[in-house]
Simulated scan of single mutants.
Amino acid sequence: MSGDLLFLAHRIPYPPDRGDKIRAFHLLKHLARTHRVHLVAFADDPRDLGHRGALAEWTASCTIVPRTKPKWRAGVEALASGKPISLTAFDDPAMHRAVAAVMARPALDDIVVFSGQMAQYLPRDSGCRIVMDFCDMDSAKFASYAASGSAPMRWLMAREARRLQAFESDVAARVDASLFVSAAEAALFAEATGHTATVVENGIDTERFDPAAAFAQVDLGSAAIVFTGQMDYPPNVDAVTWFADAVWPAVHARHPGSRFVIVGRAPTEAVRRLADRPGITVTGEVDDVRGWLAAAAVAVAPLRVARGVQNKVLEAMAMARPVLVSAVAAEGIDHGGTLRVADDPAALAAAIDTLLGDADAAAALGRAARERVRDRYGWDARLAVLDAIVDPSRRAAA
């Protein structure tokens, strides 16, 4: 073992059933091979408080802090303090105490921070190596939000983007390494802040996400168009509502037996209302997304706002599905032509029509996508670069 390591996460990395938790879980699991990991994380779902025991295999200690601050209070605190809402929403005295308790350990050598919101808990003079996994450039995401919406919302999002970018730059200046999920995100960060970054791409468990694995089968018929994701996450909500408005009517008219199936927990009211439209199904939370992906004639990710590597896309590829994505959803994925990419409604509808009309070609595309993911995106290969960052002896040997 290389020593003790504090792993800070904005959300408990278990179960690994959504994008951020998947990445955080595999980071933690990888680091536990060489370190005694002390996990300190928030839980924003009461059910997650029961997962401490499941993490015992990879942690020397595990402290989970419930996150209960309402959004209105975070907003008031942000306006009063001049801080980004992204920070005040995660500012909690109990978390400060939990971090201080681990920092008091004499053997602590490394700190890994997952997600920018948690960087506010970094001590100024820790004497530890610090790795900051930004994942995506959050400030750029808010800048894109500022391009649309009502005037007050545009002002708020622009404010968030400016103040969060200043914070991100300050954090990058203090840490030993800044990580991003794609070369595009790292380049964007370098251009905006002047700080270099290391790319640690997302991976995929290709043994679990395998059409030959054991999982509950789902019958969706022969023409199901499937979207998966956390359905209270604004970019996902925007993607499915836009697709339902701009693309789905043409697809359903051309293929009356087709279904657009929106799979994911916590659908907003706007998403739930989509189920009132012809051919659209909203599932809510499901036990295992694999059966729904396996039943898809086409998996779609028509995101209009996206940062980094989309786990939903890698999962669909690993399940050997033909996958149709927007350009921003494909960005950062080295897919080698195994994704179909389109942005405007007519092109998306035409691509779906083609895939539904030629089952053999669609199946061949899905098989090629799985081969690409298996060769390119295994977690061990993706995280190998992390060893040199947190282990100076390996870095010197390299």
Rank of each mutant, 00 (worst) to 15 (best):
V218D: 13
H252L: 07
R259I: 07
A250L: 00
F215C: 04
I262Q: 01
I262M: 03
A246H: 06
T228P: 01
R259Q: 13
V263M: 06
V263P: 02
I225V: 15
A224M: 06
P234Y: 08
P235V: 10
P234E: 06
V226F: 11
V237I: 14
P256M: 00
F260Y: 07
L220D: 11
R254K: 10
G221Y: 05
Y233R: 08
T241F: 03
A214G: 08
G221M: 03
N236A: 13
H252S: 10
A244H: 01
S222P: 12
A214H: 06
F243Q: 10
D232L: 06
P235A: 04
A244L: 02
N236Q: 14
M231I: 11
I262L: 07
D232T: 07
T228G: 08
V251I: 10
R265I: 08
G264K: 05
A239G: 12
S258C: 03
V226I: 12
V226W: 04
D245W: 04
A253I: 00
D238N: 12
V218P: 11
D238I: 10
V226D: 06
A223L: 02
A239S: 13
P234Q: 03
H252I: 04
W242K: 13
W248P: 04
F243G: 11
D238E: 13
A216C: 13
S222V: 05
T241M: 08
A246G: 00
